[in-house]
Simulated scan of single mutants.
Amino acid sequence: MSPQRPHAWSNPWVRWSVGGLVALTVLSVLAGFVLLPAVKSDFTAQGLWDSICRTAGLPSSWGGASAVKTGPATTEVVLARSMAAAPPAASVGRGGTLALNCTMCHGARGLSASDAPNLAGQYPEVIVKQLMDYRSGHRRSAVMEALARGLSEQDIADLAAYYAYLPKARTAPTTYDESLPALVRVGAPLRNIAPCISCHGGIDQKFGAPWLEGMPAHYLVQQLQAFRSGARRNDGEAQMRNVARAMTDQEIAEVAAFYARKASAGEEK
Rank of each mutant, 00 (worst) to 15 (best):
G214A: 06
V39L: 12
V77M: 10
L131E: 02
T25P: 00
D42V: 04
Y165L: 14
L166W: 07
N101L: 15
P216A: 01
G110Q: 01
Q239R: 14
Q130P: 01
E254Q: 15
P173D: 03
Q239D: 14
H200G: 05
F227N: 04
S136N: 12
L131M: 08
P210H: 02
S198P: 07
F227T: 08
S82M: 05
C53E: 02
G266F: 10
M132W: 14
R109T: 12
R94S: 07
G110T: 02
A172D: 07
E153Y: 09
S60R: 11
A23W: 00
A142N: 15
A23L: 04
K40L: 14
A260T: 06
V92I: 13
Q222C: 09
F227W: 15
P167I: 10
A164N: 14
Q154E: 14
S114Y: 04
R109N: 06
V39K: 05
V26E: 00
A56N: 07
L100D: 11
Y176C: 03
G236C: 10
R140P: 03
H200C: 08
H7N: 13
A169R: 14
P88I: 07
A263V: 05
S229C: 04
K168Q: 15
Q4I: 14
R245C: 00
G214M: 07
V26C: 00
L36V: 11
G150V: 05
Q239W: 15
E268L: 13
A89V: 09
V255L: 06
Q4K: 15
A194T: 12
S17P: 06
P124R: 02
A56R: 08
Q250S: 13
A188Y: 12
A80I: 06
P37Y: 05
Y259E: 08
Y219N: 13
E76P: 07
D158K: 05
T25F: 00
A80V: 12
D249Q: 11
D158G: 03
D249C: 02
A65F: 12
D133C: 02
S61H: 14
R94E: 13
G63W: 07
H106S: 03
N11D: 08
R109Y: 09
W13V: 06
A65S: 13
I52T: 00
G20C: 01
A85H: 10
N192Q: 12
L21G: 00
S82N: 09
L24G: 00
Q130F: 03
A89L: 11
G96E: 03
L119S: 03
G93S: 10
S152A: 04
L30G: 01
V128H: 07
K40E: 13
S152D: 04
T171V: 15
